[in-house]
Design a protein around this nucleic acid. Structure first.
Length: 424
RNA sequence: GGAGGAGUGGCAGAGUGGUUGAUUGCAACGGUCUUGAAAACCGUCGUAGGUGCGAGCCUACCGGGGGUUCGAAUCCCUCCUCCUCCGCCA
């Protein structure tokens, strides 16, 4: 969330940011009003607390000198102050609830370079595909048909075991997935990322830290008995490693990567756009996360994009990079680049990666700070992350784009990981 | 899952109801000394909110939450985590 000092100092900037996202701006004044009330109540309460502390000390002194009567009189004075404090606390709780709620409802401020726009159609093509789009043989098929006829993904089996959206990968399909995971992790390690194997379930504090709660509560699977959430992305556990952490400036940048399955409820999503692997409830993903100094986070964002672009090049997939417009950008992001692979068989671009700079928005919730070497003050760090890459859709794109009359050609970069060069 | 013990500042470790945000040691930082370094000595050395131009002052926080009391790190309840023993187990 935004910090209160920022909101207080630049309310117009916040309103402008909300407008760019096509969101109402009324919240700004509500939050500012609540903030002022809260501070007033706090000051009043603090004053009373100071008096109570002082009176209590004097009660102790009086009791030790045997002056019980006077002590009793002071006790009464304490009681009246505490009664007032109780009233103030109740009001403060109410005000704070409003303040928190309002603050949580304000999204991150879009970076200056974020294009104007409301819908995905308004996203800017930041880097178009320069090469030719693949020309597929006659009778080219979408991945769900290919996968079924090659026997590498069993969708009905997943329905039997669990339900819709939980595909079963078999044989070379399973091996291809494992190969991709290892390939992505090795590439990330080569680029300086430390590999993390995090828990696949997190508590509510972690879900709040990266912004899944409260905005995306319905998106996560929840284990009620233990009050835990299945992670929708490795971003949640990996970034939360740095919740309540104060770093030194020399610690930057912190580069982490992690492979995890990801669980998403995707409630209500059915139809042609979600067929096959386009949208599933469980998929595998290698995520990259960077904790960075505010001065360098945008350079780092571009580096992360180049890393993702390099992966797609090695997989020989045609892709384009979009700069998301204000209306399409995620709630917590300041600037997001989406990577889309062209699916020749479906004749559409499929999102396979999203790389974002959250600036201090997540860090504020996480209380992730660093110490300024000169002032010794703590300041919020910047957090970034991106998919590098999301498996299921990459598999879909590989199958569709690399199909020929006989079957599927595996890109050269993967051969040492798969141990086979074709799926026929 | 059952029984017992414990959770204090970066670490170690005091503190069991009254100026204790907290003794002390180590680490860290600044300084004196030194050609330089070490040692020694002096000083600084948690986070956050409020207030003041400022030195500063006020408030909260001793695993989380609640309670008792004029007053809680200290007493009570509850949850969490760790350790020991038993049970179960990939």
């Amino acid at each position: 969330m935004l910090t209160l000092p920022f909101l207080r100092e630049f309310p117009d900037a916040v309103r402008a940011g909300l407008k760019k996202r096509h969101m109402p701006t009324g919240l700004v004044d509500e939050v500012l009003a609540a903030d002022e009330q809260r501070r007033k109540l706090q000051a009043e309460w603090d004053g009373l607390a100071a008096e109570v502390n002082d009176l209590s000390r004097r009660v102790g002194e009086l009791l030790r000198s045997g002056n019980a009567a006077e002590a009793e009189a002071l006790k009464e004075q304490v009681a009246t102050r505490k009664a007032t404090q109780a009233v103030l606390s109740a009001r403060q709780q109410e005000v704070e609830a409003r303040l928190d709620q309002g603050l949580l409802a304000i999204p991150n401020m879009p970076h200056a370079s974020v294009p104007e726009g409301k819908t995905p159609e308004d996203n800017e093509v930041y880097r178009a595909w320069s090469g030719p789009l693949p020309v597929l043989p006659d009778g080219a098929r979408p991945h769900w048909e290919l996968a079924e006829s090659l026997g590498i993904i069993d969708f009905p089996a997943g329905v039997k075991l669990t339900g819709s959206g939980f595909p079963v990968f078999r044989g070379k399909g399973a091996r291809l997935q494992r190969a991709l995971i290892n390939f992505f992790l090795d590439e990330a390690r080569a680029a300086g990322f430390e590999e993390i194997q995090p828990p696949l379930m997190v508590n509510a504090d972690s879900a709040r830290g990266t912004g899944q709660l409260p905005d995306k509560e319905g998106q996560m699977y929840y284990v009620e008995k233990d009050d835990l959430y299945l992670i929708p992305t490795a971003e949640v556990p990996v970034t939360n490693l740095f919740r309540d952490v104060i770093l030194e400036e020399k610690d930057f940048p912190i580069r982490l990567t992690g492979y995890t399955p990801c669980f998403r409820r995707e409630a209500g999503a059915y139809g042609k756009d979600v067929r096959g692997l386009n949208r599933v409830h469980q998929f595998d993903k290698v995520e990259i996360v960077v904790i960075e100094h505010p001065d360098r986070s945008y350079d780092t964002l571009m580096q992360m994009c180049e890393h993702v672009a390099g992966l797609l090049d090695k997989l020989e997939l045609p892709y384009r990079i979009l700069r998301l417009c204000g209306g399409d950008m995620g709630f917590t992001s300041a600037l997001t680049f989406d990577f889309e692979v062209f699916s020749a068989a479906q004749q559409r671009w499929l999102e396979v990666s999203s790389v974002s700079n959250f600036e201090t928005y997540q860090a504020n919730r996480l209380k992730l700070r660093y110490r300024h070497p000169e002032t010794k003050k703590t300041q919020l760090a910047h957090t970034l992350n991106g998919s590098a890459l999301a498996l299921a859709r990459i598999v879909a794109a590989l199958l569709e784009n690399h199909q020929d009359d006989q079957g599927i050609r595996i890109p050269t970069a993967l051969h040492r990981y798969t141990g086979f060069e074709r799926i026929d």
